[in-house]
């Protein structure tokens, strides 16, 4: 309950942002932080809570993004309907990949690499078939208006991503307090022991990967509507898979607030290095990379772990699911 209260306060606080902050640039930063938090939370369900490290979340992200775009461009389907279909497709892709991998008992780095390979297969396919626009990419026509999910102000997009991200956090909160979550934790900590206790590991992992895929897909749909252009590298490229795992690991895997902390920290670090160094190509990104290493060095359990260690909000970080 306590966590739910904190969650409500944090998101209520964020919701007030557009009313207080008039700077479009800052609004955009907040939107991108929420978007990264959504990507990260999606990964966190499977990676943090389920212990299954995926390197291929672009597979779900890209499927959501392409679905909403292709439906609009090729079939004239409204993006709000596209959002529902895209989310379902992402979930279906996750179910397929999950079935193919968990069925054969792939774990650890094998699972990581096979998910990466699936994402690459989808990238190559989207580059070869006609209805995605192949290498030319797909451009969603400009049609400003909430009915077309192309809001005229940043505030509209802000509330869209706010709702999507909040829903992912609520689901993760539920995971932390449900039977399903307990089974997932048991599978993560020791799959064989969990089996011995009667947990159906396969079903639990399938549930996790489908939820994970669903939210990644929603992030992809948001991306498509916000930027209106996709190509195979944007949608299925490794950059999205890396961002998906970077955010929760920096923030604290297997914690409710980790992805939000991670998303905020990464944006702050990235903006700060750019402000500090300016525009010499390479140097600001090199500093960003170095800070990444330093963060891992001094916060091996992410920001949430650090907060817990410092005794701030003791429960917030450790209350969920302490790792064995």
């Amino acid at each position: 309950m306590r966590q739910l209260v904190i969650l409500a306060v944090v998101f209520a606080f964020i919701a007030a942002a557009p009313a207080i902050i008039t700077s479009e640039f800052t609004q955009n930063v907040i939107i991108m932080v929420l978007y990264a938090a959504l990507l990260g939370q999606a990964w966190n369900i499977l990676g943090g809570y389920g212990g299954q490290f995926s390197f291929g979340h672009a597979a779900y992200f890209g499927t959501g993004a392409y679905t909403v775009a292709v439906l609009q461009v090729q079939l004239g389907v409204n993006p709000w309907i596209g959002l529902v279909i895209g989310a379902l497709f992402s979930m279906a892709v996750a179910a397929f990949i999950g079935f193919a991998t968990f069925r054969y008992g792939l774990r650890g780095s094998y699972f990581a690499l096979v998910t990466l390979a699936f994402a690459e297969v989808l990238r190559i396919l989207s580059n070869s078939v006609g209805f995605t626009g192949a290498g030319v990419g797909i451009l969603i026509p400009l049609a400003p208006g909430a009915a077309n999910m192309q809001f005229e102000t940043k505030t509209g997009f802000f509330f869209l991503i706010w709702v999507l991200t909040l829903s992912s956090f609520l689901v993760v909160w539920w995971i932390g307090h449900s039977r399903f979550g307990a089974s997932l934790a048991a599978v993560r900590d020791n799959e064989d022991a969990a089996r011995a206790l009667g947990v159906n590991a396969f079903r639990v992992k399938m549930g996790a990967i489908m939820l994970s895929g669903l939210f990644s897909g929603l992030a992809g749909i948001f991306y498509a509507q916000y930027f209106l252009y996709l190509d195979p590298y944007i949608a299925y490229g490794p950059a999205i898979s890396v961002e998906s795992l970077l955010v929760p690991i920096i923030g604290g895997m297997g914690t409710l607030f980790g992805p939000l902390l991670g998303a905020a920290a990464l944006h702050v670090v990235s903006e700060a290095t750019r402000e500090l160094i300016g525009d010499v190509p390479g140097i600001s990104l090199a500093l960003y990379g170095a800070l990444l290493v330093v963060m891992v060095m001094f916060m091996p359990r992410g920001l949430a772990g650090l907060l817990a260690r410092l005794g701030v909000r003791r429960r917030a970080a450790s209350g969920e699911m302490p790792r064995a």
Binding site: E24, F25, V29, M32, Y223, Y226, F227, I234, G278, D279
Partner: peptide, 16 residues
């Protein structure tokens, strides 16, 4: 000066 890092979303953020 702005660096888009080859990514549309970063280019757009630079514009903002």
């Amino acid at each position: 000066l702005g660096d888009s890092q080859g990514k549309p979303e970063i280019g757009a953020a630079e514009v903002t």
